[in-house]
Amino acid sequence: MQPSAPAPSDPELRALISDHLHLEGPLLPMLHAIQRSFGYIPEAAMPLIADALNITRAELHGVISFYHDFRKAPAGRHIVKICRAEACQAVGGNALAQRTLEKLGVDWHGTTINGAVTVEPVYCLGMCACGPAAMVDDRVVARVDAARMDTLLAEVGA
């Protein structure tokens, strides 16, 4: 389940930022912590992070937009990632992904109309001998066939 906290307050954000300032290379751990708390990197965090690390907002935006993991707007209540990499393709990963996207009526990175699920591509979950693989929030599932995918989607209310 993705966190759906109310709009984060400055003190909350400042606390998360200062927790990581002692690290060497603190930005990625900081961004992960913020996203873990709020489900995304809120706009309000931008000037605070830039100020704390003495970098420009442009640099910060550059970092956030570089990595697939970080998002600047909330996702659906759950994130379903489907592996698109070669080993899963060798055992029908493409057909599974296509069917899932069609069933949900979304394209990659899209969110279902009811807001339950965002579907993302992922390139390898390390399940290469037991694909096709998917990940529902932080839970990895392997040998996913159409029926298994339907069960997973039903569990997250898609």
Binding site: A85, E86, A87, Y123, C124, G126, M127, C128
Partner: peptide, 11 residues
């Protein structure tokens, strides 16, 4: 950062 498809030894 074991991102290569077909590898899982690190994991």
């Amino acid at each position: 950062d074991e991102g290569d498809s077909g590898t899982f030894a690190d994991r």
